[in-house]
Each structure stands twice: as structure tokens, then as C-alpha cells.
Design a protein around this nucleic acid. Sequence first.
DNA 1: TGTAAAATGTGATATTTATCACACGAAGAT
DNA 2: ATCTTCGTGTGATAAATATCACATTTTACA
Lengths: 233, 233
Amino acid sequence: MIPDFSPVLNACRDCSEKSCAAAILHVKELDQIRENSRAATFRKGDIMVHAGSMTSHIIYLKSGLVKEYVKSANDSEQILQIVSKFTYLGLPSLFGDRVNHYSYAALTDVTVCYIDVNIFNQLIRDNGNFAYEILVSVSRDSLNNFHRFMNQSQKKIYGRVADAIIYFSRIIFELETFELPFTRQEFADLIGLSRESATRVLTKFKDDGILSIDGRQISILKPDLLARISKHG
Amino acid sequence: MIPDFSPVLNACRDCSEKSCAAAILHVKELDQIRENSRAATFRKGDIMVHAGSMTSHIIYLKSGLVKEYVKSANDSEQILQIVSKFTYLGLPSLFGDRVNHYSYAALTDVTVCYIDVNIFNQLIRDNGNFAYEILVSVSRDSLNNFHRFMNQSQKKIYGRVADAIIYFSRIIFELETFELPFTRQEFADLIGLSRESATRVLTKFKDDGILSIDGRQISILKPDLLARISKHG
DNA sequence: TGTAAAATGTGATATTTATCACACGAAGAT
DNA sequence: ATCTTCGTGTGATAAATATCACATTTTACA
């Protein structure tokens, strides 16, 4: 729950895990960040940000996987996206009312940098090229969310599950064999299904020889068929 | 379909319909926009942008209502949002691959300005404060889309219809009595329902005395009850 | 290592919502 | 004015998916 603050000062100008946006910054600006930021780590399962909390620091994800989610009234959870390294968390919230609209939890061990929001905003105002890169990132996010939205609202459960599997294979792991970083319930929450329905579809894919499934370990055996199901199913 | 190009030069610096972002620009920058932009009008029903087309100009909406939508394989339509005046259309697409990801059609007569995308991008890079305002706008949009997404994926049809009615009353018209700017089919497409289901819910609300409905003319008679249905229904 | 708790798979059933079919009225076209 | 098309409401039915109940497996941890 509570981040382990690293005792090491993070020398941003030498950091090998810079974002595309930060790569544009001048040495002076990077030093400005360094003086107002802090490295930290989270353990798998830790909640990093609670929806509804105020933002004083922006979180930059240096390594690990994070789920972005919200809980609704009846305790059910909707996972918005899986965030992987080299990403700023919660940018849209920052530029609105400064209240975090989503929660974030670590799916694996995670390392991050906290950056003071005032410094971050100042950099955007001072350096249009930095601002442009941040815009690119927020826009990409927005289009991705839209894609997920369309996927959930227009496809049937087989198409949705296929889509999610392809998403993990191509975007997150870049492998045809991978380990899902969460439970079946969370998998279902990501695509807006009940746990039972998600399980049933996975079992069906296994029985049909499309996937090999052993617990959280997944291999895609028939990628073409899976892609076809994602499109038309 | 084809915009009527106005013969009048638009003097941006005197324009009373500037966006929050443009209000920040210097006189010199506004003149730069003027030399690379063009005013135009569309008639109700005109398609302004086709999804998939390339973006050479960004469209700024000066007056009127526009639907942002996509068509899927089986010709069904999902309306993403209703856009009202003082808004740039399709910003997230601009910062990605420059392909328009959504289509836009005029729901009322509409006046717009076309602004050259290169000029627009240059202004963002040159003027961080302008960039900041654009970021605020893209972020607001992203959070709104998210809200719509949650609404569609977690609520039942009564809650969704209630939500949509409240949205028009509060955000679009700021009145308790208003005229829906589209057909029942489009209303259904906005909230991801079949036309028949949307109709049935509206009729139920009418029978229960929550709304008064006469064709497209709608009055909210019991706002509290409607809000409760939106939350828990 | 043993035990409790959590996660998973699966059948039966219920609920929600879409689809189909059709009647009716209003708006446009000739 | 009449014809045709489009939009709308409504009942009957079908399809998709959630919920419930419970057995089984895996994981956590004392």
C-alpha cells in the first residue's frame, strides 16, 4: 500500500527510462524535474491511486504493469485499460479538476517516478514541443479507450474475448505465449463480462484448439481464426 | 454535403466566437490563423467528415450541433457524442495518424472554421499556453467519453435513457424542456440500444409521469425521480 | 504441512434486451 | 390530392448473457 521510497536520487538526465516527451526536454528542464520528483516502487497487488483522491504528483510508470479501473455502486469493477511502462498515469484527470477519476493498482511489481504537478504543468507551458508529445500521448489513449468501448458495446462475448487475447499478445507482451497478469474475474472486468461467461468462452476456445490454456498461461494456436472471431464474432 | 464557402474573410482577431484556447493567442498568431483558415456553413443533415479520411484542416465549430459517430460492419451506427459550439472536432485523430477516426454530421445548420493542421500544430509547439488549453479540452473530452462508456456498460436500459435525457437537459440545452435534435433511431444509437427498446423506455417514462413527450419535444416533469433512475436504474 | 480462503469450472435457470412483424401517422414527392 | 417513404409505437418471440448453486482446484499462510 505504502510505496517504498528509494533513497537514491534519480538523475533524470541520465535516466534510460525516459518517456518520449521527456526525451525532448533540455538539460535544465530535466534538472528541474529531478529536484521535484522522487522514485518509488510498489509491490504486486498494491493500490497506487484511489479514484477521488487529489493529485499533487503525477506518476510516471518506469516498469511493470498497472490496471486502471473504477468500482461502481454494487462493488463491481470495470477495468479501463492495462498500462505498461513508459507511461504517465491519469493525464486526463490532471488537466481537468485535478481529482483522479480512475484508480490504479499494480499487477506486477512496479517502479515509478512521482513528479510534482506544478512543475509538470509549467514544463508544458514553457516547452511547446513537450506539450505536443503529451498531447500525442493523451490522444492515443483516448482513441484506444474508444476502441475498447466499441469492442464492448458492439461485439458478442466470443469477439470480445478474442479481442482481449489479441490485445495482450500484440500490445502488452508481443508474444504468442504469455501469462495473464490477473484472475479470471479481472479478465472479465476488463471486457465487461461476468466471470462465468469469460471462463466459458476461454474453455470453448481451448476445446476448439484455438488456444492452449493452463491456468493463467495462454498460447495462441490458431491466430488467424482468433483474428476472424475478433472481427466477426 | 459540400460546404458553402463564405466569401467573407474571417478576421480572427475580431471574432466573437473564439475558443478558450484561441483567446490566449497573440494578435500575430491570430493573423497567422486567419491567413490559413476559411469559414464555411453546413446544412442540417450534411456529412461534414467521413471516418477514414485524411485530415488537412481542423474544424472549429462556431455554432450548431454535430454528431460524432462511427458505422460498424452491419450498418449499425454508434453515436459517440453530440458536439456543441466552440469546440474543435477530432483533435485526438489529429495527434495520432492524421486519419479521422470518427465521422461528423450536422444535426442543425452549422457554421465552422477550417484551420490548416500545420498551422495548428505549429501554434501548439510555439505557444505552450495554447497547447495547455488544447490539452484541457482533449482531456475533458476523454473523461466525458469515459463517463458515457461506463453509462453504457454498467447500466440497464432505464438508467441509460434517464442519463441521456439528463445529459441533453443539463449539458446541451440547459433547459428542462427541449427538442431532441434527432430521430428515435439516433437517440437509441447514442446510448447503444435498439430503437424499439429506446421507444419503450420513453413511453414508460411518459406513462409514469416522469416526462412529457410530444414527438421530439421533451419536458422533464420529475427531475428528482429521473436522477434517481439514472443512478440506480 | 495442514487448513482456511480464494479462485475456477460448469450445469441449470432467470433476466435482459434484441429481433421480428406489423399497424399507423406524418412528411415529401409527383 | 394521392402515393410513397420514413419514422414511430407495440406485441410476440428469440437470443444473449447474467445469476445462482455447487463441486473442485489452487493458493496463502499460520
